[in-house]
């Protein structure tokens, strides 16, 4: 269990993290979302003990980062942004080094390093200097050092950034496999990734928490959730009739094509049936009518734009 309580981090001029509180339990894969500069990386740096917060606290399995940092750090695996590693070392030497720092010696060290090399498919480049590796391999080296000690808590700052689609897929599968009975926190701005691997997502903007829920819940909070996309065959005034429906929140007509429109539902309401009945009664020239699921992207835009105004 990770508990983040009233966490704030102020740099000289600005507040990177502003009174952030949340908990993450075992088995959760938490997607940590937010626009660039929202405080995602700063929060992760505080959780992993690299930076000290200005106020508030972080505990990992009961170990407070401020007073018991080494025990907390021993439980965590961390892939910092950009996957930094010592370029002049070979993959093998680097992983051995991290293993030794984690306290492994002798056979145990050989076993751990060997296992992680094959798990992340690095065996081929084990003897190569890290600085000569491609971006994808470097990212995997970073991932390998983070998971070598089978950590209870895995913190990954943009683990798939800069990878090609195949590598992304591979890393996501790796994360999914690792995730059982662990805590995983992934920061990303790729929203499809959240739907693909995360069981929960939080969105922060300007250091504040603005949304927290399962990806499905967040999608449901989109104003486009349960909206009806309507395409007419010829121009007809439909808005008068639609306004009479209590569950319709509004109509958005496509600025470029007046035949295209989206009918928004009030939160938690389903309007497809009502709109369909109305269309039949009024004999609308309907060319196409579908119901939309909320997109995380819309929610993301909604909540992060709101945060900017508040700040």
């Amino acid at each position: 269990m990770i508990e983040i309580t009233h966490l704030s981090k102020k740099f000289e001029q600005f507040t990177a993290v502003d009174d952030l509180s949340f908990k993450v339990a075992e088995g959760e894969v938490l997607g940590f979302l937010g626009p660039n500069g929202a405080g995602k990386s700063t929060t992760m740096k505080i959780i992993t003990g690299f930076l000290a917060p200005t106020s508030g606290s972080v505990t990992v399995d009961g170990h407070n980062l401020a007073t018991d940092a080494l025990a907390a750090k021993a439980l965590m695996g961390y892939l910092p942004e950009g996957a930094p590693s010592y370029g002049d070392m070979t993959t093998l030497d680097f992983l051995r080094f991290v293993g030794e720092v984690r306290g492994y010696r002798g056979d145990e060290l050989v076993k751990r390093v060997g296992r992680v090399l094959s798990e992340v498919e690095l065996t081929k480049v084990a003897m190569q200097k890290i600085e000569t590796l491609s971006k994808g391999f470097k990212r995997r080296v970073g991932l390998a050092q983070a998971i070598m000690h089978d950590p209870k808590v895995l913190i990954l700052d943009e683990p798939t950034d800069g990878l090609d689609p195949n590598q992304k897929q591979h890393v996501r599968e790796l994360i999914k496999n690792l995730a059982r009975d662990k805590i995983v926190i992934i920061s990303t701005h790729i929203l499809e990734e959240v739907s693909a691997v995360c069981t929960r997502a939080v969105i922060i903007t300007q250091g504040r928490l603005v949304a927290d829920g399962t990806p499905a819940e967040l999608e449901a909070s989109s104003k486009y959730h349960q909206a009806v996309s309507l395409r007419l065959a010829q121009p007809t005034d439909v808005s008068v009739h639609l306004d009479s429906l209590a569950d319709v929140a509004g109509i958005e007509i496509d600025a470029e094509d007046v035949l295209n429109m989206r009918i928004l539902a009030r939160p938690g309401k389903s309007i497809y049936g009502q709109v369909a009945t109305l269309a039949q009664e009024q004999n609308w020239p309907v060319a196409e009518m579908t119901v939309a699921r909320g997109q995380l992207e819309d929610v993301f835009k909604q909540v992060t734009a709101g945060g900017v105004r508040r700040g």
């Binding site: 003990g49 690299f50 080494l70 025990a71 021993a74 965590m76 720092v101 306290g103």
Partner: peptide, 14 residues
């Protein structure tokens, strides 16, 4: 410069 300081100081190292 290379960011390895973040790696080093988030390992269980004093």
């Amino acid at each position: 410069k290379t960011g390895t300081i973040e790696l080093l100081l988030t390992l269980p190292v004093r």
